[in-house]
Design a protein around this nucleic acid. Structure first.
Lengths: 204, 204
DNA sequence: GCAAAACGATACAGATCGGTATACTTCTTT
DNA sequence: AAAGAAGTATACCGATCTGTATCGTTTTGC
């Protein structure tokens, strides 16, 4: 393994173990054993365990949001559908046998103090996800994209919490149906000519 | 303090600390220090720390569901409103300065294995909450009370997850508005004469 | 090719973990 | 009032925690 790969390998190993057992329950001894590196190596790349957690969350934050963007682009139909397709992405994450709940919610749940760096990193991820939803809602010409974004986010969070307990993918589909029904009643400004060609007719 | 009160006092102290710091981060030494009892006393009442966690969750499960039932009874208007009033109850819990997220979700997040006793206790709580929602949905004569119950629950979970991060009460109101909009579109069987007198007219 | 940096392996420090043992005191019950 | 149960206080157990020190080996960059 090349030197530059070790840091990535450590982050991936740590993320897998944090997801599997949680943050406090995952000791650095287990991480280095699973990663196959010496303890000195870990502490050369990360000052403390908290630094490792923060780096892991940052990495996963980018991965997750990039994956969702890519999924939406690939499955994009009309602009309203894009918001609903995010629930299909959610469903794919639930179908992963390794899914054990949102790692950012778990991170905030194990580091409950609002001034804690891990808690703030989790909050930052959620803010960026909501910003993406707002971007989609704005593109779909909803009258109140900020409100729409937080509603979609609330449904995402609900689906993840339910799926964490039940370990089934159905909550993603249920949340999608609920979102579809709510969005159908929302006001949208008229689309410009040639844009948003395939959108469904809204009862406005 | 009378003998019989010690167990209750221990459970209350443990619940407070679990809510404040999480389960793994709360050691038994801290619990006994805060409760002001000797270690021997704790281990006379509970065989292990896990037993203490399980007893604390059971206690909180009953407390929470009884409190919700009482709140709904007290604020009951018509039968549909009862489902929406559960979100007002949720809002009161969010307004508590000590709110740091649902302790059952946190418990499941720190004990992610589905065969773990703590995980199962958390799941059991959620099942009982959903059963209560179904009871309300059935009384309100919704055509599909089971589906309605899981939808209400998904909105509750979403609101709790968002409130855990933002530490504001608004998600409860937002979830209530979403629930109201969804329920307004649901089919209900006609009410028997004299029953459900104050219900709003539905567009059925 | 050589110096510097990074690596692995191991041992260890100091704190904390859950849980037990012991000895003495206080309460409760009959 | 006596006895047994339950309380306090303290010391301790072995395991595990995060993090550091040491030292010999390998890899990298110039």
């Amino acid at each position: 393994m090349r030197r530059s790969e070790i840091r990535d390998h450590l982050l991936e190993t740590a993320l897998r173990l944090f997801n599997q057992h949680g943050y406090h329950a995952t000791g650095v001894d287990l991480i280095i054993a699973e990663a196959g590196v010496a303890k000195t190596t870990l502490y050369r790349h990360f000052e403390t365990k908290e630094d490792l957690i923060l780096a892991a969350l940052e990495r996963r934050d980018e991965e997750d949001r990039n994956a969702m963007r890519a999924f939406v682009e690939q499955h994009a139909s009309d602009l309203v559908e894009r918001l609903l397709v995010t629930f299909d992405f959610l469903e794919t994450t639930f179908r992963d046998k390794q899914f054990r709940g949102c790692i950012f919610v778990s991170a905030a749940g194990e580091h409950k103090d609002t001034v804690n760096a891990v808690f703030r990193a989790a909050v930052m991820h959620k803010r960026l996800v909501i910003a993406y939803f707002e971007e989609l809602a704005h593109a779909a010409r909803f009258a109140e994209p900020k409100r729409i974004a937080t509603e979609i986010n609330l449904l995402h969070e609900g689906a993840m919490a339910v799926a964490q307990m039940t370990r089934i993918a159905e909550p993603a589909r249920q949340a999608k149906r609920m979102a579809g029904q709510l969005l159908a009643a929302e006001e949208r400004s008229p689309s410009a000519p040639g844009e948003d060609a395939g959108r469904r007719t809204q009862a406005s």
